[in-house]
Design a protein around this nucleic acid. Structure first.
Lengths: 137, 137
DNA sequence: TCCCAAATCGTAATCATTCCTATTTACAAA
DNA sequence: TTTGTAAATAGGAATGATTACGATTTGGGA
């Protein structure tokens, strides 16, 4: 999702487009991978000294709710990234830099056959490791 | 993994087989699904009044380290279950009762082809929903 | 049985996240 | 452009899971 798309989505849903919100989305737009609330706070702190946890977490959840960010949990901490809205896919996640690579393979069609009487609500398929760039370093 | 196997593994690795440890494994043996530290404490509390968090968490990590338990993270809380050691597989996890169903489908062979220069270290494939038993209730 | 490293207790500390009240601000309507 | 108001934010306390630590107890080998 493009930065401008994300900002427009906030407007479209009737939420205010504050400077902080725009900068938050800018951060994720530049990051292009999973980042934590802490990462975001560190990014915002110089410009918005004393920014409230409340503001950060509330907006992260808002962005997740309206589909502007997507979230996953890595070693006990929530991580966020800008939404990939175009089609269903999964991610390789680099444990060093948090950047992701799309994986277009999803085995759910096959899995559903094996779970006949089960009510499936969600699934998670993630691959972890080190990306080529971080292997160099 | 059988309860006795698990207890023997503790001995084999040179750790002491205390009554608390046996009861902890008994809990997971009966549970046959994912449980939290809190669940375990509730189970142990009547018999061992005032059992220490330290004891519970230390042993959970020990059991994970020596491969007697396996772990996953569900909505911000670590969950543990007795290890499935026989072969590689994944799980459907019931969000009501925590019980699991083995899924023998794993798409990693195919995925590896798409990640040529990536150093893959781990992967997670989990399906969430409600099991047939919990759908009745 | 005795000894001692391992295990446990009791409790405080930590860390991410959530909650609360007072204050400020975006923006729709006049 | 000004104003009214609901939404957004600040500042900081509270929560909940987990980890840390010094003092004490205990399993199991010698």
């Amino acid at each position: 999702m493009e930065l401008n798309e994300a900002i427009n989505e906030i407007k479209k849903q009737g939420y205010k487009t504050t400077a902080k919100r725009k900068d938050m989305l800018q951060f994720f737009d530049e990051a292009d991978g999973y980042r934590t609330a802490k990462d975001l706070i560190n990014y915002l702190e110089p410009k918005y000294e004393g920014i409230s946890f409340d503001t950060v977490y509330r907006n992260l959840h808002l962005f997740d709710d309206i589909g502007v960010l997507e979230t996953t949990e890595l070693n006990g901490e929530k991580h966020f990234r800008i939404s990939c809205t175009h089609h269903h896919h999964h991610h390789f996640i680099c444990k060093d830099c948090g950047k992701t690579k799309e994986i277009d393979i999803c085995p759910m069609d096959e899995v559903l056959k094996a779970l006949d009487n089960y009510a499936i609500e969600d699934h998670k398929f993630e691959i972890y490791g080190v990306c080529p760039v971080c292997q160099e370093a």
